[in-house]
Design a protein around this nucleic acid. Structure first.
Length: 289
DNA sequence: CATTTCACCTGGTGGC
DNA sequence: TGCCACCAGGTGAAAT
């Protein structure tokens, strides 16, 4: 479901609600395996840790945790940007296509396909729901493994030269390259199509044949589209909602994604839909070269 | 190695 | 109404 802007929106919302709270009890569904770490080890790792903060890394949600047993008074949660202690452990949540991370009241009905419930000291619950089970949950003890890091570069902060270097001498289609998470992390099907439209570049163009100007247009278009989408709370294509259950509004700004056959908003040419890298791909054959 | 294809899942939609 | 084909915001393993 979620790409960078949706994950950013969710991470911010969850952070605002659970920062400083403590994990009292953990439950995992016996079914399913959206688990990178076996459920038993996750339960053991998570219990009695304090949530120092929640952030986004690529398309991953990272919940930073204290050492087990350290607790902060409910009246004064750890001060905002920098936790007083470095994280001792992390809970990594990847939402796949249909995953959701919700903060609920304890009495809220359990949605179908709920795979994890973390009961917090405040009595609220952090719930992971994922019908298709493409999502992944991982517990990392930072005494044993290093801090979670995305493989690819952050599209919001990468500079001109580094961005161009990613695509040099590559023969695959530029859209396939944008989707490759070991190059850039966070770009998915919607924002790949939308940024290519705004940069005026055809999705099938071999990445290595783009000019420096085109690559720079693409980098800026991508950055702008992602920033605007974050401002609007992401795109709600079907039933995506943030931690509050609120829909995003960037779908109203889509210029090509899921607009096959509709007139291009710039030149009225019907938007084309093709299959590329196994994904639906939308573009304007007139505006994009 | 780089690139492409496909399986992994459930649920919603639209055609017949 | 029922059945079926097709589609969906992602990714990683296998094949080429």
């Amino acid at each position: 479901m979620p790409e960078l802007p949706e994950v950013e929106t969710i991470a911010r919302g969850v952070d605002a609600r659970v920062r400083g709270d403590r994990i009292a009890e953990v439950w995992f569904s016996s079914k399913s395996e959206p688990f990178k770490t076996p459920p038993a080890r996750q339960v053991k790792g998570l219990e009695s840790r304090t949530i120092l903060g929640v952030e986004r890394v690529g398309k991953h949600i990272v919940v930073n945790l204290s050492s087990a047993g350290i607790r902060f008074s409910t009246k004064s949660p750890p001060p905002a940007p920098r936790p007083p202690h470095p994280a001792a452990a992390q809970w990594i949540v990847h939402l796949g296509m249909t995953g959701r991370l919700l903060v609920t009241a304890p009495e809220a009905p359990i949605a179908p396909h709920t795979h994890a419930r973390l009961t917090l000291t405040s009595r609220r619950e952090l719930r992971f729901v994922d019908p298709r089970r493409f999502g992944r949950l991982e517990f990392r003890d930072l005494a044993r493994s290093h801090t979670f890091a995305a493989a690819g570069a952050e599209p919001l902060s990468i500079g001109r030269e580094a961005f161009a270097a990613l695509f040099r001498r590559r023969r695959l289609a530029i859209k396939a390259a944008l989707l490759n998470q070991s190059l850039l992390s966070g770009v998915g099907n919607i924002y790949a199509d939308e940024s290519l439209f705004r940069a005026g570049i055809r999705p099938r163009r071999p990445a290595g044949r783009l000019t420096h100007d085109e690559l720079e247009r693409l980098r800026l278009a991508l950055r702008q589209v992602l920033q605007n989408a974050i401002r609007l709370g992401g795109s709600s294509v079907s039933d995506y909602v943030d931690a509050d259950g609120v829909r995003g509004f960037f779908q109203l700004e889509h210029r090509v994604y899921q607009r096959a056959g509709d007139p291009c908003l710039v030149c009225k040419t019907p938007i084309k839909r093709i299959l590329l890298a196994g994904r639906s791909t939308h573009f304007c054959p007139h505006c994009q070269r």
